[in-house]
């Protein structure tokens, strides 16, 4: 697998010294599969085989170029963006989201923080395609997110809970996760609180099993069924659509609360970034 070697190399080089961090995403997943008996983790033999050639891996390089390129009305790169570990520190930053930021006074998920930096540092506005286009492989946001996320591959999820706002958002997310409502009486826990259950052919991840849940929350991921890389916000929106609840606002407080809770449920387990999903 020549392509595999080519693609894995930049990832491996860019990553730091932690043992897990030098693995490719499929190796992180394999480690989880070896650690626990899970029909969710093993449900797609095909995806396991395709992961070394995942189209998401190509976005890493695109995203890296975009990140370091001088862009936007202010013609500067994103190198001074603070993702919580200091300006320009990207390694391991992604797994420490959502996080409270003093400069905005709120808890932000990764995507919101990225957009914040593109606006405040580079001068983009909501109307610029760089920010307006949120969906698909071609979107700048998808590429940038995949790049920064890849620098947390194999790192354990560790969303900070030091600030009371972080704890408050996580706890509200927990309430929302278990809160039944809507035409079909669903809450997230209807489908994500048992092991090995299926909706039709899809095996459902159990939020109570961190080794399963880490794969569930590992986004961006190449969605085979969509033929595109998708983010965590896409998945939240998709599950709400199936639930017949109101649609969560992109980058809104509902998304942030849900993602605060779901990353916390994967705490301690290695992230698979970027992942491949059905």
């Amino acid at each position: 697998m020549f392509r595999k070697a080519l693609l894995a190399l930049p990832v491996a080089l860019a990553l730091g010294a932690t043992a897990n961090a030098q693995k490719a995403p499929e190796d992180v997943l394999q480690g989880l599969i070896d650690s626990i008996d899970s029909s969710y983790l093993t449900q797609s033999e095909m995806n396991l085989m395709m992961m070394p050639d995942s189209p998401a891996l190509w976005l890493i390089d695109d995203g890296k170029d975009l990140f370091h390129e001088a862009r936007g009305p202010n013609n500067v790169s994103l190198e001074t963006c603070d993702f919580g570990k200091g300006p320009g520190v990207l390694e391991g930053a992604f797994v420490e989201f959502p996080r409270f930021f003093e400069d905005t006074g709120r808890v932000m998920d990764f995507e919101s923080r990225l957009v914040h930096c593109m606006k405040t540092i580079q001068g983009f506005t909501d109307d610029d395609p760089a920010i307006r286009t949120k969906h698909g492989n071609a979107a700048d946001i998808t590429k940038l997110q995949t790049y920064v996320a890849s620098l947390s591959n194999g790192h354990a999820w560790n969303p900070p809970m030091d600030h009371p706002m972080e704890q408050a958002m996580r706890d509200a997310g927990e309430v929302i996760f278990y809160r039944r409502a809507g035409t079909m009486d669903f809450s997230c826990s209807t489908c994500h609180a048992a092991t090995g259950k299926r909706i039709r052919a899809s095996v459902l991840p159990n939020s109570n099993v961190p080794e399963e849940w880490t794969k569930a929350v590992s986004w961006p991921a190449f969605r085979v069924g969509h033929d595109n890389v998708r983010s965590a916000q896409h998945r939240v929106g998709e599950c709400y659509w199936q639930m017949r609840h109101a649609e969560p606002v992109w980058g809104g407080t509902g998304m942030t609360a849900i993602i605060s809770y779901w990353n916390d449920r994967a705490r301690g387990q290695p992230a698979i970034l970027p992942d491949m999903k059905r």
Partner: peptide, 14 residues
Amino acid sequence: LAEYLIFEANGFNV
């Protein structure tokens, strides 16, 4: 807070 985020804080397209 959950009720507030759902109904008041533009968390959902209500």
